[in-house]
Design a protein around this nucleic acid. Structure first.
Length: 367
DNA sequence: AAATCGTGGAA
DNA sequence: TTTCCAAGATT
C-alpha cells in the first residue's frame, strides 16, 4: 500500500492554488443551489463538459426549480435529454424530483448519507452535491480522481473493482481540505480534466511533477489500472417505417433493452441482414399481423435506406430501414391497432424523444 | 461481481 | 479503422 501522507498536508493547498489559477468558468460553479448542482452532476456522468453544457443550459431554462422538473411530463424530459445517452439518468431524475416534491417538501437532502438514497445518485454524485452545496467534507471520486491519484501516488489498485474504488476513496478523503472541501473536489476533477489528462498529460507544468510516482517511472499511460473489458455484441435491426401522407407509426420502447422510453418504429431483429422479401418471409406467427397487410406492404412502395451503423459502448448495431407507404389512412390505423403502435404527425414525431439513430434517419429520409 | 446502459470526440 | 473513454449508477 502506498503511503498516503503527503508532506505536511500540502497536497490540498497546492491543488487548490493550481485550481484558482487555471479553472474554467462553468455555470454550475456559480451556484450553491442543490437542484442545479444535482442537475449538472447527473448530466456530466460519463459525459464531457462540452457535450453536457448546452443541455444544462436548456434544462435550467426550462425547469428553474425541482418543482418545475417534477411537474413536467416524462416524455418532455426525455426529449430534452435526447442525444445525451444513458437515458435512465433522465428517468431516474424525474422519479427523484417527484420524490423530493411529494415526500421531502420540495427540499433537497442536505447530507451525503441522505443524498445517497436518491435514485440515480451514487457515491460520486452524493459527495459532489454534499460538498458543493453544503460544504460537507466528503471526497467525490470520479474518473479524473482515479487518474490523478493513481499517477501521483502510484496507486495500482484496479479501479474496476469495488475494493480498488474504496482504496481511492479513502486516499481522497485523507487528502481533502478541511477548510474548503468543495474547492478541493472541484480542483481534483479539474486537474484531471485539463492537466493530468488520459493522453499527453501536461507534466511540464505540473505542480506535483517532483513527487509524481508515475512520472518518475515514465509510466503515466499505465495509470489508472483498469482490468475490465467490454465485449461488444453485434445486432442486426430492420425497421419497418409505415407511412401515409406524413403520418408515421411509432412505438415507445419498454423493457430492459436499450433506449427504454424512447420512440422507434416496428422493429424486426435477426442475426444477420435480410432483404425485404427475406425479412417478410422470416416473420414468425406472433410477428405476423392482420391478414392482407403483408401483401399491402409487398404491393406498395417500399423504400429501403442505405445501411446505418450505430455504435454503443457494448453493442454494434447494423440497421436497415424500410419505408412502407400505405395507400390510405385506414390501413395505417388498422396497423396501428394490430401492432399497438401510435399514429404520429410530423410535429408529434418531432416532439417525441428518439434515439439519435432514429433522428438521423428521419432527418435524412422523412422530414 | 460482472453486465448493462449512449453518444461523440480524440488518438 | 480501432480503441479508448468522459464529473457513474443500477442490478
Amino acid at each position: 500500500m502506498t503511503s498516503t501522507t503527503y508532506s505536511d498536508n500540502s497536497f490540498d493547498s497546492t491543488l487548490i492554488s493550481w485550481y484558482l489559477k487555471h479553472k474554467r468558468d462553468l455555470p454550475w460553479r456559480e451556484t450553491t443551489d442543490p437542484y442545479k448542482i444535482w442537475l449538472s452532476e447527473i448530466i456530466l456522468q460519463q459525459t464531457r463538459v462540452q457535450q453536457g453544457l448546452p443541455y444544462y443550459e436548456r434544462f435550467v431554462a426550462q425547469y428553474p426549480t425541482v418543482k418545475d422538473f417534477a411537474a413536467a411530463p416524462q416524455d418532455e424530459i426525455l426529449r430534452l435529454w435526447q442525444g445525451l445517452g444513458y437515458y435512465s439518468r433522465a428517468r431516474n431524475m424525474h422519479t427523484t424530483a417527484n420524490h423530493i416534491v411529494d415526500e421531502l417538501g420540495g427540499t433537497f437532502p442536505t447530507s451525503y448519507k441522505e443524498l445517497l438514497k436518491l435514485k440515480g445518485v451514487g457515491k460520486y454524485t452524493a459527495a459532489a452535491i454534499a460538498s458543493f452545496a453544503f460544504k460537507e467534507k466528503v471526497a467525490s471520486v470520479d474518473g479524473n480522481v482515479y487518474r490523478v491519484l493513481s499517477r501521483v501516488f502510484g496507486m495500482a489498485d484496479d479501479i474496476a473493482s469495488p475494493k480498488g474504488q474504496q482504496a481511492f476513496s479513502e486516499l481522497a478523503n485523507s487528502l481533502i481540505s478541511e477548510e474548503h472541501p468543495d474547492l478541493f473536489n472541484q480542483a481534483l476533477m479539474e486537474f484531471g480534466a485539463i492537466q493530468c489528462t488520459p493522453a499527453n498529460p501536461n507534466c511540464m507544468f505540473c505542480p506535483f511533477a517532483q513527487e509524481c510516482v508515475a512520472r518518475s517511472n515514465g509510466e503515466q499511460s499505465s495509470f489508472p489500472v483498469k482490468t475490465k473489458k467490454v465485449k461488444v455484441k453485434k445486432r442486426f435491426l430492420h425497421y419497418l417505417v409505415f407511412e401515409h401522407k406524413g403520418m408515421l407509426l411509432m412505438k415507445q420502447r419498454k423493457g430492459k433493452d436499450i433506449w427504454q422510453g424512447l420512440f422507434d418504429f416496428y422493429l424486426i431483429e435477426r442475426d444477420k441482414f435480410l432483404t425485404f422479401d427475406a425479412l417478410i418471409s422470416s416473420l414468425s406467427s406472433d410477428e405476423i399481423w392482420g391478414t392482407g397487410l403483408l401483401e399491402t406492404a409487398m404491393d406498395n412502395n417500399v423504400k429501403e435506406s442505405p445501411d446505418f451503423k450505430h455504435i454503443l459502448t457494448h453493442q454494434r448495431l447494423s440497421v436497415r430501414f424500410f419505408k412502407v407507404e400505405l395507400p390510405n389512412a385506414e390501413k395505417l390505423q388498422e396497423l396501428s391497432n394490430h401492432l399497438g403502435m401510435s399514429v404520429l404527425s410530423i410535429d408529434e414525431v418531432n416532439d417525441s424523444p428518439k434515439p439519435i439513430l432514429i433522428e438521423n434517419y428521419l432527418k435524412e429520409y422523412i422530414y
